[in-house]
Nucleic acid binder design. Structure first.
Length: 211
DNA sequence: AGATCGATGTTCT
DNA sequence: GAACATCGATCTC
């Protein structure tokens, strides 16, 4: 009987995030929870590098939040944003050198019914995992999954090899107001790719007083 | 298809 | 106290 899809290894993910980003396109992220199984085919990602990338969560050094980014590759970095959403990254680079790839969008390839229950606002199946918080939502990921080893055969969340992709597109990262000049967003043609939105610049605006 | 806005709470200054 | 790797609703074109 045929073996299932190959699981990616820590070694092949221990590379620069720009390399890991292309590697992740077309891969399948498969999550098992008490509710059931949901899997998505990754169609859109973004690279975040350590040190020189002001948009990276580890730009200003190690903190409790970004701790897993400083650990081994192939782990899941889950963070809480905007007071209500979770986003998930795959840690890349090697031990001690931070880096990660944000999983921005995917196509649900398994467990569509459960995915629909988790994302009732989706108007069609392409919208189920169209966006980083939606992707984590359909997979049922939250802060309890921070640090999970995607390369472990016994892990509840696994990263599986998929069909190789062609025609990878690139552009600036979504919702990022700094380092807008680097095209570190990568995607393949799919209705699930999120629409581009410029980073909202929230530098303080001094409002002149009325009268 | 784009613009705007509110919700919500954690993290860092 | 401000920023924030977003979403969903509602409005205009």
């Amino acid at each position: 009987m045929p073996a299932g899809p190959r699981q990616l290894t820590e070694q092949e993910l221990a590379v620069d995030p720009l390399v890991a980003a292309r590697l992740l396109l077309g891969c399948v992220l498969r999550s098992t929870t008490p509710e059931g199984v949901v899997a998505v085919r990754v169609v859109e990602v973004e690279a975040y590098r350590g040190g020189d990338d002001p948009a990276s969560h580890c730009y200003r050094g190690r903190t409790p939040r970004n701790d897993v980014m400083f650990g081994p590759a192939g782990r899941l970095y889950v963070y809480f944003v905007y007071g209500m959403h979770f986003c998930a990254n795959v840690v890349s680079l090697t031990d001690g050198v931070p880096g990660a790839v944000l999983l921005r969008a995917g196509e649900v390839v398994e467990g569509v019914d459960l995915a629909r229950r988790r994302r009732p606002a989706a108007r069609n199946d392409a919208e189920l995992a169209k966006g980083p918080a939606r992707l984590t939502g359909v997979l049922g990921l939250d802060r309890a999954h921070n640090g999970v080893d995607l390369t472990d055969p016994d892990s509840p969340v696994k990263l599986l090899a998929g069909e190789p992709v062609t025609d990878v597109r690139t552009g600036p990262r979504v919702g990022v107001a700094v380092a807008v000049d680097v095209p570190w967003r990568f995607w393949v043609d799919s209705p699930a790719v999120s629409t581009y939105r410029r980073g909202t610049r929230r530098t303080r605006v001094v409002v002149p007083p009325e009268r």
